[in-house]
Simulated assay, not measured.
Amino acid sequence: MTNTIVQDDPARRRFEILIDGTLAGVADYELRDGTLVFTHTEVGADFQDKGVGSALARGALDQLRQRGERIVAECAFIAAYVQRHPQYQDLIAG
């Protein structure tokens, strides 16, 4: 992965990961009562098994931490990522 960018697209309610300008994956979310709820994460077929999902999760969670936001991980991938990386446990709401 040469040039990797994780960005929030609030209009589409998702975080996106771009690799060399190509959309490689998304983490969809909803806003509920001021909390960001991850609902689904998907990585494109050409980018699977290359750490793209983890890079997306890490980038999104780091941005949310900087913004002072809390999350709910309804998405199984995000929930598992937070479980494996305890440094993000403090972002979980409730």
Rank of each mutant, 00 (worst) to 15 (best):
N3Y: 13
V6E: 02
D8A: 06
D9L: 09
A11N: 14
A11I: 14
R14E: 15
L18P: 07
D20E: 15
G21M: 07
L23D: 13
A24S: 12
E30A: 15
L31K: 03
T35V: 15
L36P: 00
V37W: 11
F38D: 06
T39H: 06
H40C: 13
T41P: 07
V43C: 02
V43A: 05
F47A: 07
K50E: 05
G51W: 00
V52Q: 01
G53D: 03
S54D: 11
S54P: 02
S54R: 06
S54F: 01
L56E: 06
L56P: 00
A57Y: 02
R58Q: 10
G59I: 04
G59M: 05
G59D: 06
A60Q: 08
D62K: 11
L64A: 14
Q66G: 07
G68C: 15
G68K: 13
I71M: 06
I71Y: 05
V72D: 01
V72R: 02
E74A: 13
C75H: 10
F77A: 04
A79D: 05
A80S: 11
A80H: 03
V82L: 00
R84L: 07
H85N: 12
Y88W: 00
Q89N: 07
Q89H: 09
Q89G: 01
I92R: 01
I92M: 03
G94F: 02
